[in-house]
Amino acid sequence: MRGFAELNPAVLMIYYLCVIGTAMFSMNPVIITLSLFGSLVSLIVLEKKAHIKLHLSFLLLFLILAVINPIWYHNGVTVLFVVNDSPITLEALLYGIFAAAMIIGILYRLRTFTLIMTADKLLYIFGRLSPKMSLILSMALRYVPLMRTQTLKVRRTQKALGIYRGDNIADTLKGEMRIFSIMATWSLENGIITADSMAARGYGEHRRTSFSLFHFSKGDLIFLILCIIPTALIIWALAAGEADFTFYPAMSGINSSPLALTCYISYGFLSFLPVLLEWKEELRWKYLMSKI
């Protein structure tokens, strides 16, 4: 079974560029709504657990962002009510709501991005650009936690040796300074051993290649096509101005020309694509299971 997370990282990257890029340049309420719900459902399906705290904090952020606009911005023809001689308009309120929905939608999408694009996938993408870069990143990913645990060990040892036994800030700071300085020495020392080990294994002898566990399969190609075609349609509609929507001074209606409808359907498809893929795989899995 090959779900969304198992796709080739480069394909995933292209998907995220498409889905976030198109959502950022449109204030069309349909697209924003599709983006918000698409990313929300994707997160729930991909993470397979409910993050009540996350949703609550995003809801709070949504409310704040939605309220700020009508309070500060008084453009618009439909006055709802007046507070302190400032009119609160329907247009400004709706604009606030949709702007907030766009931001929250993108935040949800980025949340799935961090969930899906783990360090080794990003490494793979950068490794395509340069094998050296990927090695450096990989070494850094190893080195940083190693140094952190060593620092912790040194701190514990020094505590149990009672070297900095005073309980005052000056002594603690002095102790920390010493630990920091010895960690620099430790890093250099170990850097030499690592460099030896690299030389012993032939680093720098030939032009390096970059190996990875990812490969590009038929499924990746299909996903890529399913990602590029709707994006092209959306860009066409946006460029032609068919999916435009204005809030001020009065709201324009939602365009329902054939191209605009194609654009909405395309965006909906793009936005729910991870969910569709997961469902498809799940159905396939159930079907295959039934044969066992």
């Binding site: 990989s138 080990s197 690299m198 032939g202 680093y203 290649t209 190996f211």
Partner: peptide, 17 residues
């Protein structure tokens, strides 16, 4: 002596070189 962060990457390091 370990250079990289993952087991598979460490195994492939010499071959990449």
């Amino acid at each position: 002596q370990i250079v990289t962060d993952k087991v598979w990457h460490e195994l492939s390091f010499g071959l990449e070189n």
